[in-house]
Write a protein that binds this DNA or RNA. Sequence first.
DNA 1: CTGAAAGCGCTTACAG
DNA 2: CTGAAAGCGCTTACAG
Lengths: 327, 327
Amino acid sequence: MKPKIKDVAKVAGVSPTTVSRVLNDRGYISETTRKSVYDAMHQLNYIPNDLARSLFNQRTHVIGLIVPTTSNPFYGELTAAIENYCSAQGLKVLLCNSLNRVDKEKQYWEMLRRNQVDGVIVGTYNRGLLDYDGHNLPIVAIDHYLSKAIPVVGSDNYAGGKLATETLLSKGCKHVLHVNGPLELETPANLRRKAYEDVMAQNGLPHVTYEVPHVFDRNEQERVIKKMFDEHPDVDGVFASDDLMALAVIREARKRRLSIPKELKVIGYDGTEMVRTVEPELSTICQPISTIAETSVTLLQKQIEAPEKKTVRETWHEVEVFQGGTV
Amino acid sequence: MKPKIKDVAKVAGVSPTTVSRVLNDRGYISETTRKSVYDAMHQLNYIPNDLARSLFNQRTHVIGLIVPTTSNPFYGELTAAIENYCSAQGLKVLLCNSLNRVDKEKQYWEMLRRNQVDGVIVGTYNRGLLDYDGHNLPIVAIDHYLSKAIPVVGSDNYAGGKLATETLLSKGCKHVLHVNGPLELETPANLRRKAYEDVMAQNGLPHVTYEVPHVFDRNEQERVIKKMFDEHPDVDGVFASDDLMALAVIREARKRRLSIPKELKVIGYDGTEMVRTVEPELSTICQPISTIAETSVTLLQKQIEAPEKKTVRETWHEVEVFQGGTV
DNA sequence: CTGAAAGCGCTTACAG
DNA sequence: CTGAAAGCGCTTACAG
């Protein structure tokens, strides 16, 4: 079967200890034995068993990544960015698509622990699911407040919401509405709404937010958007809390024969490569996905290396407005 | 630190052997000891160490998944579908985004072996990268021929290409062109082109295929598409080998003030949820992504359970045409 | 510079 | 019905 360290040792004419030493480049080894060990490894096509190493070292170099689903372009890109950065750092990622379902997420947490992951990056939130503090597992959250102790990374949602709203107003909108996903207070994304409301208030304008309770439900989204147009026939600007929502708004607007950006201006949030490719017309607030990915991984690594050290609690990255043609 | 089986045994007043037995539900255990073991496990908040189990069992229940990148909607959805089905089967997935780079893919293969994965699902191909036959690792490929022995799963590319081309012709197109990705012979996706050529020939029409050599390069894609329009001003139908390409064609057509579908008809391939949501107008050939995902996992599991048994070499799933408004 | 021994946390024959 | 022992493939003190 698969050659093990013992086999390599036999071929090289040394002890397993020595083979392990050259493998890990630890201690003094004479050049000649080092060479003969390497030769033996090549000859046998030896591949170390990371399970055994991890068991001993109490370190797997595996992290868990929990996202709602890689089907969503934002999370698909975030996942790619995180995994890529991890692989450059020698970290491996165990992927978990929670589908925002409590039962699935719970199961994933247990699975990750059983597999002794060194840490986990979470892009979901299920209230009260986990005793997030009563653990000793390094965790970094993306755009979700899990607990007082867990670092959060994301785009500067407040600045983004402000930028979006101000962009609409600066283009002459008078009646700006906002569509958002589920308004849980734990989501920093909620700051997008807050910023919208603040800016509107500062300009002496009323604000109205429409909520799509179940985020990946297309029909419900459509229903809410229709309602929005029905209740506000005079709307001239919409800030959608993500690009898919913005595109849905645009589709509905077209059905109603509203010309964009003349009669209605629309701006989204996220600015994924995907949406930018498929619909370059869409004006949006771009999140720096790869920066968010790198920061999350780096913060996680710091926690892994030095669990006792305090880490930065919140990291918000700058956003940019992308001027497409819908604003 | 973390409680181990020994700690549970001590609390329950039994031997580690017995704890292991109730954990694995193997052999006869009296109800009373079973209960006391469970109680001890709860009390200590015991979580089994899968590393140790895997080391002994020579089975990790982890598989590797290699895709170009989850940023791409097709692979993002495929990844989600595969991971989901896996998790329902008690399998975990180690994600690898190869970015179609030989060096990365090579590194991933080694990583997966070191981690003792039970098998791997591959959605990429790098010619001659691996001695695909000189291994004993269960592998399933998605839409790529890796070697004579490795099962391939995908959509019925030939039928899809035929359907696409026939749809265009049936709508009255006379001058149909085809845009495709890199034309490696190893890709069954090449059958999409073959089908296009065959159908055109059967109808006594000339066929011209444009190739975009580097698949995820937007600029190059644009360049090729421009060239296509320049060289064929009389084109009235385009079959693009994937939806993103089709959307790029449509964008260029709009720039050239061609009205769709009146003057130009366009049909794509893939039919991801994403594109269907963002651009429901696009007519396309839909691949049954979740069926492909399930078949791949199932085939892999069969190989894992019974490595000596022959598996089906090729599995092609039916496609469907989606009639949007671009055809 | 190199090796024998013990141990990472689990499981499974083998006894009893 | 239950336990002591050996072993999965590695690594690291500890001797020499």
